[in-house]
Amino acid sequence: MTTLDFTTHTVPLDGKAKISAKNVNLWYGEKQALHNINLEVGENQVTALIGPSGCGKSTFLRCLNRMNDTITSCRIQGDIRIDGDDIYAQALDVVHLRARVGMVFQKPNPFPKSIFENVAYGPRLHGLAESKDHMEHIVKSSLERAGLWKEVSDRLQSPGTGLSGGQQQRLCIARAIAVSPEVILMDEPCSALDPIATAKIEELIDELRENFTIAIVTHSMQQAARVSQRTAFFHLGVLVENGPTEGIFTNPVDKRTQDYVTGRFG
């Protein structure tokens, strides 16, 4: 392998940054997975992270709610702030962080419990509901916001795993928003879904943008183009280009971005 090109082209964010990452480096054991990442995620925007497999986009996403903590060989350096709070500070509790930063995963992974219990899990964990009625309200409104209420209102007690793939993923989104996070991270949320279910999720993402800041990792450039306002392109652990989605897909600055979005890699 030739030497890495560490240049980053950034079109500055106009508007408020919700998350700002500065000089983030990350190692898995001896191997460096992220090289000096500087990225801002705008408030109430959808920021798409794209790039080939193993480029570090998922790794970076997982830095934002410290899911990488569970990997013992993982070492991280740099500064990541949400609304100015350093999320890797000693004083900050990771449970607190994850209540602020929800996550939706690649494979729909509802708990093998009832639909109600799935959504109620987070609020129960963090003690958000004051009464049974309050909990029911939280569950209902979360399912409504996830666009699932109409489909499941008559079978809240049936298992969440019995839903279709797309419904399961929306259930996972409902579960994530039930604790009223500020940020929702999505790690390829549609990769296991059919186009109609994907379209529903994309529509949902667009609606959620009003209340949440969303960062989404996706392998589908079309999806990134459809749902995001800003796009960040990662390659070999380097943030190559970061700017408004339109610019990335019509007129990328960097040759690597150009090659990737036009399908000239490999």
């Binding site: 019509t250 990328p252 150009q258 036009t262 399908g263």
Partner: peptide
């Protein structure tokens, strides 16, 4: 082909 960037242009 859903062309992007230079191809699209």
């Amino acid at each position: 082909r859903q062309p992007m960037a230079i191809d699209l242009r």
